[in-house]
């Protein structure tokens, strides 16, 4: 077993390239190119107000993308994040508007509801062995239905809780630096991203996230209670969806029970553009964040250039296919 030193510790740069950071670099480069391209095309694009609008538009999709990234790294998929987000918002509406409870309870309710939903999805997948696609498809419909039932299909407004819209629209940064009034929603997005990235890369939960996606049977044979960890990952993902629910409800100052469907696909798109492998085992929060930013920049930039909304959707679809194709090409070459 004496093995020559040809495999001596690699340089940091070599390791970064080796571990699939490529796609992330590619995504980041695309983002920069898009930003430069749009600023040349339209002088209105590179305005502080427009940049802030892009960030604000990223916040909800970004948080959802972070949530679904965790599940996708385990080799699963979550189709329920859109309607789950709405469901969390509706529950917050019940707590704050119907029951008139204080703001902090509403916040906790949203996060706990999300975690609870994730716990259910996780149990369906891990214990009942239902494929994630089916389990979360079921959850998607259940939660959509429940949101409509609980709210009586009417929006729940937060007019009685004046602080609520501050969660997303207020600006702590703006109070300190009036020149850059970055809204709290964006701040929350970056905090969520930072914390989740830390969990993913520095904690046991994160390690098992990658390990499950890489070779679940092997993890199980190593004596790890894989079912429990998988459920925990879905629950954490759900809790993050709860935060997205707070963000969207706060931005609209209402819980719109009919909203939510379609958000899951935008979130998955952001994750894929960011280089996370749909077959599991590989991915990053930073990538998903960049993916969500790319989508927001595209939508915003095309709008600034007065391209019809219908065409924006077409372009987004094409970008997804291009992004994954680029990743495939790279992987085939290195294989």
């Amino acid at each position: 077993m004496s093995i020559s030193t040809q495999d001596a510790p690699k340089s940091v740069a070599a390791r970064m390239i080796a571990t699939g950071t490529h796609q992330r670099v590619l995504a980041f480069a695309s983002l920069i190119i898009l930003l430069i391209g749009f600023s040349i095309a339209s002088p209105n694009f590179m305005q502080t107000s427009n940049m802030i609008a892009i960030l604000q538009a990223t916040s909800v999709n970004g948080v959802l993308a972070i949530a679904v990234t965790l599940v996708i790294i385990t080799g699963g998929i979550d189709l329920s994040v859109g309607t789950m987000m709405t469901f969390c918002a509706v529950i917050t509406g019940v707590v704050l508007t119907y029951a008139g409870l204080p703001l902090w309870l509403g916040v906790i309710a949203a996060i706990a509801t999300g975690a609870g939903c994730g716990l259910c999805s996780g149990t369906f997948v891990a214990k009942m062995k239902i494929p994630p696609f089916i389990a979360t498809l079921g959850m998607m419909l259940i939660l959509k239905g429940l949101s409509l039932v609980i709210s009586g299909t009417r929006p729940i407004y937060f007019n009685d809780t004046p602080g609520f819209s501050e969660i997303s629209r207020g600006s702590l940064i703006g109070q300190i630096f009036p020149a850059v009034p970055i809204p709290n929603g964006v701040l929350i997005l970056f905090v969520v991203a930072g914390v989740t990235a830390y969990i993913l890369n520095r904690t046991v939960l994160g390690r098992y996230c990658f390990a499950l996606g890489s070779n679940e049977e092997s993890v199980r044979l190593s004596g790890v209670n894989t079912d429990r960890w998988k459920i925990a990952i879905y629950a954490l993902s759900g809790a993050i969806v709860g935060i997205a629910g707070l963000l969207i409800a706060s931005r609209l100052n209402s819980a719109q029970p009919a909203l939510g469907l379609g958000y899951e696909l935008e979130a998955i798109a952001a994750v894929v553009i960011g280089g996370t492998s749909l077959s599991g085992g590989r991915g990053s929060i930073l990538g998903s964040l960049i993916g969500a930013l790319i989508m927001a920049v595209l939508t915003n930039g095309l709008r600034v250039l007065s391209v019809a909304q219908e065409w924006q959707t077409v372009v987004t679809g094409a970008i997804i296919i291009l992004a994954v194709y680029a990743d495939m090409l790279r992987r085939r070459r290195s294989a």
Partner: peptide, 25 residues
């Protein structure tokens, strides 16, 4: 039965990772 996406050390000590508080590795 190794996990190809993890490092050698992460594979060897899977399930028994040295931990600090709050499940940090």
């Amino acid at each position: 039965s190794l996990m190809n996406d993890l490092t050698a050390a992460q594979n060897v000590l899977i399930g028994r990772e040295p931990r600090r508080s709050f499940g940090r590795l």
